[in-house]
């Protein structure tokens, strides 16, 4: 999953310091894997170079901890593109999809749209695999079935998440 895009999502509501960003990330998405400071600053400098964030109100003194980062228009465009695009359907996307859904809720985008876009992508792949099954030999069928069961598990998770969006919104938004 892209840490850069996630940081952009957290920056959309307003400029933040690096350490503040790390705290916000860890709290929402860090569960088992909090970010290292090094990771945060190397990601931010990459975003800076790419023009996706800019510095705002640098306070006197040196050191990265004095800088406040703000998302640029190009950054918003990238974030929009990422959130609006379905992930390539493959099993175990929960992490990325969960992040997208929470970011949508945080930034006032439609989480339903994200889930629906992904749902359509998953089902389209499942249809392709189902069609392949009807022409393939038994080995093909078994391989396709395995993928189909895993994709179905993901789709069911998407449905359950959609049903729980109201509750999740209450938890995510202060």
């Amino acid at each position: 999953m892209s840490i850069g895009l996630t940081l952009l999502g957290l920056l959309e509501s307003g400029p933040r310091h690096g350490y503040d960003l790390k705290r916000a990330y860890d709290e929402r998405f860090g569960h088992d894997h909090p970010l290292h400071y090094g990771q945060v600053y190397s990601t931010l400098s990459r975003l800076l170079k790419g023009g996706l964030v800019q510095l705002e109100g640098v306070e006197p003194g040196a050191g990265p901890e004095r800088k406040r980062y703000a998302i640029t228009d190009a950054g918003v465009t990238d974030l929009d593109g990422w959130l609006g695009r379905a992930e390539k359907p493959e099993p175990y996307l929960q992490n990325t999809l969960y992040t997208k859904v929470v970011l949508a809720l945080l930034t006032g985008r439609s989480a339903d749209d994200i889930l629906d876009t992904q749902r359509a992508a998953h089902l389209a792949l499942m249809r392709t695999l189902t069609r392949r099954k009807s022409t393939g030999d038994l080995a093909d069928q078994l391989i396709c079935d395995h993928a189909l069961f895993h994709l179905e598990a993901d789709l069911r998770w998407l449905e359950l998440t959609a049903a729980r969006l109201a509750a999740l919104t209450e938890e995510v938004l202060p």
């Binding site: 629906d116 499942m126 069961f149 069911r156």
Partner: peptide, 22 residues
């Protein structure tokens, strides 16, 4: 069941009595 729906050519989703365009 998504695996059953995957036999179809396309799907229509109904929510709260309205069909949704995915």
């Amino acid at each position: 069941e998504p695996r059953v729906a995957a036999y179809a050519d396309r799907e229509v989703v109904v929510r709260d009595g309205r069909s949704v365009d995915l």
